[in-house]
Amino acid sequence: MTEILQTPKLVTVFGGSGFVGRHVVRALAKRGYQVRVATRRPDLAGHLQPLGNVGQIQAVQANLRVRWSVDRAVQDADHVINLVGILYEGGKQRFAAVQEVGARAVAEAARAVGAGLTHGSALGADARSQSVYARTKAKGEEAVLETVPNAVIYRPSIVFGPEDQFFNRFANMARFSPVLPLIGGGTTKFQPVFVGDVAEAIARSVDAKVEGGKIYELGGPQVLTFRQCMEEMLDIIERKRLLVSVPWSIASLQGAILGMLPKPLLTSDQVTLLRTDNVVSEAAEREGRTFATIGLQPQTIATILPSYLWRYRPAGQFTRRTEA
């Protein structure tokens, strides 16, 4: 009797070509899923092909601001993942359009085809926040749960990994600048989380191993201030730099000026966001909405950072440093 092979589950990933997205695509491909990556520029998603077998990963054009492209991208999908988000506004890419209206569009499209939904948000999402980024993230969560009540929502703290725009940016700055700025004195607390751990959590939601209808807060095993993050980074790249405190007022002014650039290093909204600690809440810990509930033990920055920040050391890979 001929065995009938079951077609692998099809998963559509919006924002799959981005930093977190590429790691999610890898985790899904390893599980044998067919992956459809919905992105505004599929011609720039070629780096995803080696993550799976031939024909397993397909990039399609989609824009959250264009509803018909969203509907087309989720056709026949069994599960939908939305990882689209922006850190600053530019052109037609506005916070509300992408993170609120766009989130609802993806949720409605997933509901229409009967697909499961995993939504990527951010720790600090708050409808009452003075930050537009944080407010629209919270409104996006509300739209998702209103549309797909059993959706899984993840709020990671600052995410680090080989392609991150946090540790890489400051490590590169330390190569040329004798000082590094500490906005607001560097007292803001973070709970850095490894991108691989976030990707695994998302993949487990596709595996139906995570209870839906909840907002999970994902933070690493350490709570560090901005200053401590910089000190840890400098120790790893073996450079000594002066850490200079920048008052909130001056930082806001700098953000307003830099925010006018096409790709700003800092915006006034980001400065506002930095006024609030970015750590897992006591409520999430108490209610079991963390990594522990998902069955994952997140990795520390000391374990991961040396694996990709070595290139910022004075001698690069030829350093005499002996890792523990």
Rank of each mutant, 00 (worst) to 15 (best):
K139I: 12
R111E: 05
R31E: 13
A302L: 13
V106C: 00
H23T: 14
P306K: 13
A151V: 07
R94G: 10
P262H: 00
A171N: 06
V206M: 00
R94W: 12
A115L: 01
T2L: 14
V246W: 02
T272E: 13
L266G: 00
V70F: 01
L44K: 15
V210L: 08
S69L: 05
L273Q: 10
F194A: 04
R26S: 03
V152A: 04
T272G: 02
A27F: 07
L258I: 11
F318I: 09
K263T: 10
A127P: 05
E200A: 12
A105H: 11
V148R: 02
A96S: 14
G213L: 00
F160C: 03
N150S: 15
A208H: 09
D71E: 10
G120E: 10
E146D: 15
G219Y: 11
R26N: 10
W310H: 10
G196H: 13
V24F: 12
A29L: 07
A256Y: 12
P162G: 08
Y33M: 00
H79T: 03
A171P: 09
D126Y: 09
I202M: 01
Y308W: 08
R175V: 09
R104A: 00
T12S: 05
D43K: 09
R72A: 02
D76W: 14
G91Y: 06
A284S: 06
E231A: 03
K214P: 03
F95D: 06
L180F: 10
A199L: 08
T303W: 07
R320K: 05
E200M: 07
Q34P: 00
R175I: 06
D277W: 00
A283G: 05
S281E: 06
D76P: 14
L182K: 04
D78V: 04
G213T: 05
V25D: 09
L28H: 02
F291K: 02
A77K: 07
K139T: 11
G85I: 08
Q93N: 15
P247K: 06
R31Q: 14
V179D: 10
A203S: 09
I257R: 14
R67L: 12
G185S: 03
D164G: 01
T2A: 14
Q299K: 12
Q6H: 15
L261F: 11
V37R: 08
R241S: 00
R22P: 04
A97W: 06
A208G: 06
G32Y: 10
K189M: 11
D207R: 02
L51N: 01
L48G: 11
R320T: 02
T187L: 14
F170S: 02
K263E: 08
I81D: 05
P247T: 03
Q93Y: 15
Q270L: 05
R241V: 11
Q61E: 12
N278W: 01
F291Q: 01
V198P: 03
A103R: 09
E217T: 10
Q93P: 12
I202C: 03
K189R: 10
A38H: 08
S177L: 14
A171S: 03
G90N: 04
V210A: 07
Y88W: 05
L274T: 11
V66G: 01
G288N: 13
V24K: 00
R313P: 10
T12V: 06
L218Q: 02
G140I: 08
S157Q: 00
P221D: 07
L218C: 07
Y154N: 09
L28Q: 05
